[in-house]
Design a protein around this nucleic acid. Structure first.
Lengths: 232, 232
DNA sequence: TCGAAGTCTTGATATTTATCAATTTATATG
DNA sequence: CATATAAATTGATAAATATCAAGACTTCGA
């Protein structure tokens, strides 16, 4: 593994505090690979052989049932996915595919578990990460169960706007087809939902969104830190 | 704290492997309390002062937004709740109320965090627990996004049947009003959903459910281990 | 630069789910 | 045991969301 990537991974919160020898052991069996866009990385139900680290690009976590499919999460650099499955040595609950050309490190799950037993700092970092992930899914659950699709879109736009720097105009970070799936609606309905937000000053052009009347939109969306704050 | 309860808590997966001195330290600032039914234990948004352990009774975790309310989880003895918030020292994302008369132990969150730093076995147990919780919420997310309300009810009944021992007739473990909220629907619709399952051999009388044609119901529900298995 | 393939949008319609109101049934309490 | 209270059911209707089909717009590769 090239030195620069080795260091990128090392600097992740998850690995930053662990002992050198443990990190070395962890990365000994690891490898880094380039993938083109739209490549299936893992499939739900398979055993969790590797903890994945997205070094560049983006990965879509999705699930299928009875012929239907839904996007559950998007993983962006630099962070990991499939941590819970790796730790529990349980089958993946979600499938993963690259959204774009991506560079991904694979750390053998059994090494992760072994070193987690040896290294207290690593164990603590894993706890912090898992607790964060857990809370983030709970927020998603609340978003889904407490809000209509129009409200989910409105709040998603406000979150995305914030992440993009807060300006009135910003870019959606994925195609609408996927956004619809993430928000739990059909593409057709997403189109209509965007129209439904026009009275609140929202306009879209391709992936570019403009929020003309910030106050109006916020009054409608009623964002709440216990659902919409990314951290905490 | 009475010896018997001390031992009940000690035997929880979460605390079973930790050092005696650490467990003693953890329970020193702890106390146990009896609550009647329908008592608010915590409110979302508050700081997470205590890790809660349900010793007997049952607790409903729910959340509110914009005048709406939804049940997210039910905690039954003997297990903990609010672990992620305690660990991260972050505000509660959910409120909790007793569903029935309950006995609950409260362990100061700061002690949990302090001892988690000292005790590797405790840290590992927390990781196992959090990973499990995370996976369980992901399953809930898939249930919500991939299934209609009728399908969710059908699968819920199959899960509940299994938990109750597998017989054709069994009891729902909470009132329909709450079941509706857990499944993400209105009470009126739950009533209709039960009717909708009659063609598959499902009958209800109060809280007693009978599945006359197991195969039919399973063919309709299409239960899937990656959504419906409680463990793993 | 053209054409193919895919995405996005729109309209028409169907299905699912929620709301409202009324009634029945169950539960709890004095 | 009677009655007050809440829960559950039912019917009628409304709202939200999905589906299907068609056309417009993009993107990408030959």
């Amino acid at each position: 593994m090239p030195e620069s990537e080795y260091r990128d991974i090392r600097n992740l919160d998850l690995f930053a505090q662990m002992k050198d020898e443990h990190f070395t052991a962890l990365t000994r069996g690891a490898y880094v690979q380039n993938f083109p866009a739209q490549i299936d990385l893992i499939t739900e139900g398979e055993p969790s052989d590797f903890l994945h680290v997205v070094l560049s690009g983006a990965v879509d976590l999705f699930a299928r049932w009875n012929g239907r499919e839904t996007s559950l999460e998007t993983v962006r650099p630099i962070s990991t996915f499939i941590l819970a499955a790796s730790i529990r040595d349980a089958p993946y609950l979600m499938s993963a595919r690259t959204l774009e050309k991506s560079r991904i490190a694979l750390l053998p799950s059994q090494d992760v578990r072994a070193i987690f037993d040896l290294d207290g700092a690593f164990a603590r970092a894993i706890v912090a990460e898992l607790a964060q992930c857990y809370r983030s899914v709970i927020k998603g659950q609340k978003d889904l169960k407490l809000r209509s699709s129009l409200e989910r879109l409105a709040n998603h736009l406000l979150r995305q706007q914030r992440r993009a720097g807060g300006a009135a105009a910003f870019e959606l970070d994925f195609e609408k087809r996927r956004l619809a799936s993430v928000l739990g609606m059909t593409p057709e309905n997403l189109s209509r939902a965007f129209k439904g937000l026009r009275p609140y000053g929202v306009t879209v052009n391709g992936t570019r969104v403009t929020i003309a009347h910030q106050d109006d939109l916020e009054r409608f969306a009623k964002p709440n830190p216990l659902i919409d704050d990314v951290s905490s």
